[in-house]
């Protein structure tokens, strides 16, 4: 066990051991155990539980819906993140910090309230609800509502990741490209995008994890109609409350697996971004 010198005075060994033991114990009980339990419960009767759980057409419909919602909300928020970070990081204008605050709002609004404000807008008592209903278009208790609230709760992920990264990288390379005769889109695709690729992927992965797993907001607008408007997390809830606990854990383990994969990718990307920063510092030396 050693401590890097730049981190000051080394603590006595007994302090180190005590704190490390507390750390490992706390993380093991509070973070690792719940995840372990999911897989333990799901695999209690072996893979049989999965076979039974996946025979249910509602399970497949939930998987489909979750993938559909993710496939819409992630790209949409990625495009927004790219546009917002270009406008905010590459230009100076008044009101920038206000705009940054507004983009962060969805993080400050709790999931249930996020869902609820969409009900107020599109529900039958809502602003647009009656009109849309007259046209035969249903938003609340239907797929469009689920997509909308998922977009809302995952709104800031990509932008939040890209804005600081692009601000840090500055405008020099883009100005050089423009002075060499590159068009705007050429500058973006050949110069900016390669420089932000890891940060972009990082944001997309976080956005994706949240989009797949969102529960509170979606449960408000979906109505949990089995086989129709239940996403995977809602399907888990339905199974669990219906006392089909093994199946609930089997489906939950699928989501947990996605979570673990996200974590692994995220760790790898953090390492990548750190490496890129180091290179950047080297080039600017």
């Amino acid at each position: 066990m050693s401590v890097e010198n730049k981190h000051g005075i080394q603590d006595p060994l007994w302090v180190q051991w005590t704190l490390i033991t507390i750390t490992i114990g706390f993380v093991a009980i509070f973070l690792a155990l719940p995840v372990a339990i999911i897989f333990a419960e799901a695999l209690k009767d072996g893979l049989k539980t999965y076979a039974i759980a996946l025979k249910d057409p509602a399970a497949w419909s939930a998987i489909h819906l979750t993938l559909l919602v993710t496939a819409i909300s992630v790209p949409v928020n990625t495009v927004f993140g790219l546009a917002a970070s270009w406008a905010i990081a590459k230009f100076e204008f008044k009101g920038k910090s206000l705009l940054l605050t507004l983009i962060d709002i969805p993080f400050a609004v709790s999931p249930v309230i996020s869902g609820f404000i969409y009900v107020l807008l599109f529900g039958l008592q809502g602003w647009f609800g009656q009109t849309l209903s007259d046209w035969g278009f249903k938003v609340i208790f239907a797929v469009p509502g689920i997509v909308l609230v998922t977009i809302f709760v995952t709104f800031p992920f990509v932008a939040r990741e890209l804005i600081p990264l692009m601000q840090e990288q500055g405008n020099d390379e883009e100005q050089a490209a423009i002075s060499l005769g590159a068009k705007g889109w050429q500058t973006f695709f050949y110069v900016t995008l390669p420089n932000i690729r890891w940060g972009l992927l990082y944001g997309v992965i976080l956005c994706n994890a949240r989009a797949m797993g969102e529960f509170g907001a979606v449960s408000v607008v979906s109505g949990s109609i089995r086989g129709k408007t239940a996403t995977l997390p809602l399907h888990v809830e339905v199974l669990y409350n219906g006392f089909n606990v093994p199946a609930a854990f089997a489906m939950a383990s699928l989501l947990a697996l996605v979570g673990l994969l996200t974590l692994a990718l995220k760790t790898y990307l953090e390492w990548k971004v750190k490496q890129q920063r180091r290179e950047l510092a080297l080039v600017n030396e």
Binding site: T23, V27, A32, P111, A209, G213, F215, V236, A256, G259
Partner: peptide
């Protein structure tokens, strides 16, 4: 501190972000 498994522990800290809340709940 530097100890065996530190990097893994560090990665695990984000579990609550990565695991859907309903899954954590059950």
């Amino acid at each position: 501190y530097r100890f065996v498994g530190r990097k893994l522990l560090d990665a695990l800290i984000d579990l609550p972000f990565a695991i859907p809340t309903a899954v954590s709940g059950i």
